[in-house]
């Protein structure tokens, strides 16, 4: 079966992106339990929200 051009190009894009994946991060994650990964995700979300809040506050102060 011949793959459609779209599927072929999607494969190329995926292969390109795979080169950029940090395998050390993946290996570290795979050593954790699924629950530990989801707890880490929640913690990362909290951190990202705090950084966004700080950024927004700074932009507001700069605009004054």
């Amino acid at each position: 079966m011949i793959a459609s051009p779209d599927l072929e190009s999607a494969d190329l894009v995926v292969e390109f992106y795979k080169d950029g994946v940090d395998r050390t991060l993946i290996r570290e994650n795979l050593r954790r339990s699924p629950e530990e990964r989801i707890r880490a995700l929640e913690s990362l979300q909290r951190f990202a929200a705090e950084v966004r809040r700080a950024g927004a506050l700074t932009r507001k102060d700069d605009a004054k």
Binding site: D6, A10, V13, V14, Y17, K18, I26
Partner: peptide
């Protein structure tokens, strides 16, 4: 994710395929 086909989904597919490779190696 492949079927969704958006650029951001393909980036996720790349990571998930790496995870599958790493798990298979383990």
């Amino acid at each position: 994710k492949r079927a969704a086909g958006r650029a951001k989904d393909l980036e996720v597919v790349a990571e998930l395929e790496v995870i599958r490779e790493e798990r298979d190696q383990q």
